[in-house]
C-alpha cells in the first residue's frame, strides 16, 4: 500500500537529512506505529505520503503509484484516498459535529443525500451517535478527536495517517481513540500512526517502525515501544541510556 525506496529528504536549511535513505513497505490492511524522538523524521514520513513534500531522492509509492509522477492537479485525487488525523484535531469551530464531518464530503462534491446517509453511519462507528448537533467546544478532547477521525474516514480512504492523535489526551481517553482506530483498521483501512505514547504501543502489540535521525533503526512485528531485541549497529545503547548521555550524543552530532 505504501512503499519507500531509499527515500531521502533534505530540507534546505537543515544540513542533516530529515529522512535518510529509508526503505520500507507497509501492506494493505496493516496497522503500523511510527515511533521515535521529536525530529526523528516521523512527520516528514507522513508528509511524503501525502505529497505535501517531495522526496530529495528515492521513490515513494502509494497504492502502487509513484507519487513523484502524480501531476499537481491529480494530487487531490491521491489525498482523497488518504485520511489524516492530527494531535490538535483541527475541527472547524463554527460548524457542529455533523457539519464538520460533512465538510469533507461537500468539498469533493458529494451529493446531499449521500452525505445525509453516510455521516451518521461514520459518527456511529467512532462512537458519537446522537452528538451530531454539538459544537466542537462543547465536546471533550477525546470526542473532538473522534470527530476528526470521522472526518478523516468519511470518504472511505484506503489509508489513515495519524500524527500523534493521542498527544493531547489522557491515557484512558487515548485507549478509547485507539479502539476507534483499531475498528477502522479491522474494516480494511491501512493505518499508520506516529506516536510517543509507549503505553498505547505496548498495549496494541502491532508493527513498530522506529526512526532515529531520519533512519529506520527498528522494524518489528507485534512489538513494544522499546525493543526487547538488541539492535545491531546504530547506537541502540544511547537511546536507552540516561538523558545525560543522550544529550551528549546529540551535542556531538551538531
Amino acid at each position: 500500500m505504501i512503499r519507500f525506496e531509499n527515500v531521502t529528504k533534505v530540507y534546505e536549511q537543515n544540513a542533516r537529512p530529515a529522512l535518510d535513505s529509508v526503505s520500507l513497505e507497509i501492506n494493505r490492511g496493516e496497522f503500523t506505529f511510527l515511533v521515535g524522538a521529536s525530529g526523528s523524521g516521523k512527520s516528514t514520513f507522513l508528509r511524503l505520503i501525502l505529497k505535501e513534500d517531495k522526496a530529495s531522492s528515492g521513490s515513494v509509492y502509494v497504492a502502487g503509484q509513484n507519487v513523484a509522477n502524480i501531476s499537481s492537479w491529480r494530487v487531490p485525487k491521491l489525498r482523497r484516498g488518504i485520511g489524516v488525523v492530527f494531535q490538535d484535531f483541527r475541527l472547524l469551530p463554527q460548524k457542529n459535529v455533523f457539519a464538520n464531518v460533512a465538510f469533507a464530503m461537500q468539498v469533493i462534491g458529494k451529493s446531499r443525500s449521500i452525505i445525509r446517509e453516510t455521516v451518521p453511519e461514520v459518527l456511529k462507528t467512532v462512537g458519537l451517535e446522537g452528538k451530531e448537533r454539538r459544537m466542537p467546544h462543547e465536546l471533550s478532547g477525546g470526542e473532538q478527536q473522534r470527530v476528526a477521525i470521522a472526518r478523516a474516514v468519511v470518504n472511505r480512504p484506503g489509508i489513515l495517517l495519524a500524527d500523534e492523535p493521542t498527544g493531547n489526551l489522557d491515557p484512558i481517553t487515548s485507549m478509547g481513540i485507539m479502539g476507534v482506530l483499531d475498528k477502522i483498521n479491522q474494516n480494511g483501512t491501512t493505518v499508520v500512526m506516529a506516536t510517543h505514547d509507549d503505553d498505547i504501543v505496548n498495549e496494541m502489540r502491532r508493527r513498530v517502525v522506529e526512526l532515529k535521525n531520519g533512519k529506520v533503526i527498528r522494524d518489528e512485528a507485534k512489538a513494544l515501544y522499546t525493543s526487547m531485541i538488541p539492535v545491531v549497529g546504530e547506537s541502540r545503547r544511547l537511546r536507552d541510556a540516561s538523558g545525560e548521555e543522550l544529550n551528549r550524543a546529540q551535542g556531538a552530532q551538531l
Binding site: V107, I108, N155
Partner: peptide, 17 residues
C-alpha cells in the same frame, strides 16, 4: 486557512479551494 487546510487534506480540487 483552517478550512482550506482541511479542504486540501481531504482532497478538494484546486478549483473548489
Amino acid at each position: 486557512r483552517r478550512e482550506t487546510g482541511i479542504m486540501r487534506l481531504v482532497g478538494a480540487s484546486k478549483m473548489v479551494i
